[in-house]
Design a protein around this nucleic acid. Structure first.
Lengths: 193, 193
DNA sequence: GCTAATTAAGAACGATTGTTCTGTAATGTC
DNA sequence: GACATTACAGAACAATCGTTCTTAATTAGC
């Protein structure tokens, strides 16, 4: 039997994801990845086929770790406005933490022109999944009377996605927590009315 | 006296700006720029010093042409909610035009980690200028009774910027005009309340 | 028509890109 | 302990990166 691997795939994905997250796909070089992960160049190609394969693995890893607990916030029963507020508060904490790199999915969307359609489809799918979680919370909020039944939850979910994607940009301009909280209150005002 | 230039600086900036706009600073190569503009490599360095110099000239060109007429919408007297609505409608037209590349300033903000601080400062300044134009419209709207005097125009301006930056991301996911209009109406609802 | 100045065209620089290849070290089975 | 298999380490690949240099073309003033 062969020689044992000296690396942990999990750890490699953790580190590589952070690099892609910060630098984007095109602006991340194999050297960047090798230096950051400590993984041998040959092992990298053996494990992930090529740079794109590693990136796809990183996106998968990202949605299963970095955004997983965020999605869990939106799934916590009983569903309602509380989930959405908790989600946004978490994002504001992140945006003002000093270690803000935005959202890997949003960052990737910005450079979509340069990427393979396979990547873009996966990113879109994940963003769509996120929207659907908002939608479920909004429908529940409508049922329990937190928001008016005259509202269209599809529209409100799109609206929330737009706001949160905007937040991933605003977060890069060093905003104050107070300012982001105010934006959040205004945003929620449109939903609660 | 010397040989006459065969290129128009204006046209070169026009074309180069489009390339940077679509590809981002780091992902645009000198070859990309030479091929697109037809400008000689040596002339390019002679005129703009280097890639960063050209980019800075392009940002300047961008705010003086591409966003100029947008800013003019926000300055058209009498100021009020009408200016803001007209601005957003214009952005929605753009986002659904099929030739959407987002906003050069927003795109640049996403890759700010990789850029010289000089660039980031200029981009921030321009975005801040845009916010101030919103602010002026909101203050006017308050004076003419379009929005409540209990609102904080500073907060609303931040809120609008967040929404519009979000729109520059949402626009990359091929949204329908109907969906964007609905998002706009929801956004404006929070302001007019 | 010579000189000086500035342009255009593109070769050339070393460094870096993503990827592949070569050689060696390590390990379980026979 | 030899064998097959796989990982490691890093050299090597052609291509491209941003930048600089060389050479020739063009023009205005003398």
């Amino acid at each position: 039997m062969p020689r044992a691997k000296e690396y942990s795939k999990e750890e490699v994905l953790n580190t590589a994801t952070k690099v892609f997250w910060k630098r984007g796909f095109k602006n991340t070089s194999i050297s960047d990845l090798v230096n950051a992960t400590g993984l041998n160049k040959h092992s990298m190609y053996g494990e992930f086929e090529n740079k794109e394969g590693l990136f796809l693995a990183c996106i998968d890893h990202y949605v299963n770790t970095s955004t997983k607990y965020l999605m869990d916030i939106l799934k916590e029963e009983p569903l309602g406005i509380g989930n959405i507020k908790a989600f946004i508060k978490n994002r504001i904490e992140y945006a003002t933490s000093g270690e803000f790199d935005g959202c890997l999915l949003v960052n990737t969307t910005v450079e979509k022109h340069l990427l393979d359609e396979k990547i873009n489809k996966i990113v879109n799918k994940e963003l769509y999944g996120q929207k659907n979680l908002f939608h479920a919370c909004l429908v529940a909020a409508q049922k329990n009377g937190e928001i008016s039944t005259e509202k269209d939850c599809e529209i409100l979910a799109d609206y929330l996605m737009c706001f949160l994607e905007g937040l991933m940009i605003v977060g890069k301009t060093n905003p104050t927590k107070r300012s982001l909280n105010n934006i959040m209150d205004t945003t929620m005002g449109a939903i609660l009315k």
